[in-house]
Design a protein around this nucleic acid. Structure first.
Lengths: 180, 180
DNA sequence: ATCAGCATGTAAGGCGTTACATGATTCA
DNA sequence: TGAATCATGTAACGCCTTACATGCTGAT
C-alpha cells in the first residue's frame, strides 16, 4: 500500500533531461513513450503538485510569456536521488491487458467470422503503429551524438520487434481460423 | 464513465464453458489467461455479487460439500447476450505497462551496467515464462477434439511469438549497450 | 503439529480516467 | 468566424490491489 505512482518516475525522468511544463510532459508521454506507458492531464498535474510539496521538483514561471502563464518544473537533488533509486531497484512490473486476446480466448461463444474480424482490426492498428515506430527509429538514428538517443532507440526497437511478431502471428491466426 | 469492468466479461466467458465457483475462476485466470489479463479475489467476488443482482449469472450451492460451502455460478441467457454483445463490439483496448522499458528509456540517468542488469532480469523472467507457454501449447495440442482449444491455442501462440521476439530484442539490446 | 491449499468474503485506500471549467492565440 | 492548439487545473467516480478475517482439509 506504499506509494507506487510510476507517473512520478516518468515525470522525474523527463525532467532529468530538461525543465518542462505539465503540458510539455503530456506531449512527451504521448510520443514514443506511449507504446509502453500512458498518462493523462488528470494524473500529471496532481502529481506535479504533490512532488513539489515533497521537494522532488521545484517550479518557476516563464517570465516573458505574453499568453497564458506557463509553469516550468525543474528536478531537485532529492528528485534525482529518487529517480536513481528507482532505476537501481531490481523489481519492475510489466503488466499487459490485451482485450483483443481476451475476446479471442472466448471466441468459441461467437462465430469464427467475428474472431477473424477482431484479429483484422488488431492487425490494421498494429500496422499503422509500426510505421510510426519506424519513423521514430529513423529520426533517432539521424542524431547519434546525443547519448540518450541510444536508450530511446532501444525502446523503439523493442516496439518494432514485438509489433512485427504481432503481425506474423496475425497471419498464422487468420489461416488457422479459416482452415482449422 | 459507463460501466467498463472487463472482469465481468472474463467471468461470463469462463462460465460460458462450465459452472464454476469464484475460487475456480481465480485459478483459471491465474493459468494461461494470466499472460494477457489479470484478476484478484478482491475484484472477482464483488463482481460475482453485482452480476447476480443484474441477472447475468445465477448461483447455487453444492449439495454434498462436506467441507466449506462452495458456491457455483451459472451463466443466464442475459449473461450470454452480454458476452456476445461484447465479443461483437469492434472496440478493444490493449494497454501495456512495461516498467522495464520505462527504466531503459531513462537509462541515461544511471550507468550502463544498471540498464544491462535490468534487461537481464527481464530476459530471465521471459525465458521461464516462455517455457510455461510451450507447456500449455503441448497440452492443448494433445486434445484437438475440443473446439474451444483452438481459441486457447491461438492466444498461447500469441504469447510464444511475442516472448520469442522479446528474447531476440534482449540479445540485440545487450550488444548495443556493451559496444555502442 | 504445522503448513499449504481450498474457499468466501470485506475494508481501506491508491491510482487513474473522463469530463468539466476557463481562456488566450493562431490559422484557415 | 470558428476550430485547433496551447495551457492549467478540479471533480466525480470507477476499478483494482493488498491486507485482513475466518476456518476446514489433507499431506508431511
Amino acid at each position: 500500500m506504499a506509494k507506487d505512482r510510476k507517473i512520478d518516475m516518468v515525470i522525474l525522468g523527463l525532467l532529468s533531461h530538461e525543465d518542462m511544463t505539465g503540458y510539455d510532459i503530456k506531449k512527451h508521454i504521448d510520443g514514443a513513450i506511449n507504446f509502453f506507458w500512458k498518462g493523462s492531464f488528470g494524473s500529471i498535474y496532481p502529481a506535479l503538485s504533490a512532488m513539489e510539496n515533497e521537494g522532488q521538483i521545484s517550479k518557476y514561471k516563464a517570465e516573458d510569456s505574453g499568453a497564458r502563464e506557463k509553469i516550468f518544473y525543474h528536478i531537485t537533488d532529492n528528485g534525482t536521488d529518487s529517480l536513481k533509486a528507482w532505476l537501481n531497484e531490481e523489481q519492475a512490473v510489466n503488466d499487459m491487458k490485451y482485450e483483443t486476446l481476451l475476446k479471442l480466448y472466448f471466441g468459441g461463444a461467437g462465430d469464427r467470422q467475428m474472431s477473424l474480424h477482431n484479429i483484422e482490426i488488431f492487425e490494421s492498428k498494429i500496422r499503422s503503429d509500426l510505421e510510426l515506430l519506424k519513423m521514430y527509429k529513423g529520426n533517432l538514428e539521424k542524431d547519434t551524438s546525443n547519448e540518450d538517443h541510444m536508450y530511446f532507440l532501444l525502446t523503439v526497437m523493442f516496439g518494432i520487434e514485438t509489433y512485427e511478431a504481432y503481425l506474423k502471428w496475425c497471419g498464422k491466426a487468420k489461416k488457422m481460423l479459416k482452415n482449422g
